[in-house]
Amino acid sequence: MTSNILQNVNPKLFLKCDQRLITDEELNDDVRDLFDEREVFDLIRNINDPEHPLTLEELHVVDIDNIMVDNDNNRIEVLFTPTIPHCSLATLIGLTIRVQLLRSLPSRFKVRVKISPGTHNSENAINKQLGDKERVAAAMENSTLLETINNCIATVEKTTKQF
């Protein structure tokens, strides 16, 4: 999927946030922990960028402030920001985020993955692609594409702390 010539040679790096601290409530078996933005962010922050050996969090492609979780209506919306407006890998990144969320969240949630408004030249087209269930399902049938996505997701496990 990726060519040998890098599209963004020297992207800007951002600091990674610390591991989520475990609260007493989280250790209490009787308390129900609701899904929150940080939990969804932790699912996708360590996905690898297809172009660099850097995570989406380090490149600021995903940010906790761009995640909306509505537990009452079972809705989750994630906005991501490509590092450059003409990034041809934006669809792949969006698809990877979408696949990781589909695999990691309960099916009761309706998940939407979109590009942050005004951050990409083909924003509408990509949003449409990512919102189309049929097209996402068809993409998942493509073994080459699936392998690329799995390669990006494989790093999640290496960087996720096991409690």
């Binding site: 922990d33 990781q100 695999r103 990691s104 309960p106 996720t160 096991q162 409690f163």
Partner: peptide, 20 residues
């Protein structure tokens, strides 16, 4: 994935991601 405890959900995600 819909366990009531977040820490269990994290373990479930880790396991499921691996099995995928």
């Amino acid at each position: 994935l819909d366990d009531k405890k977040r820490l269990v959900r994290q373990s479930a995600v880790k396991a499921r991601t691996r099995w995928f």
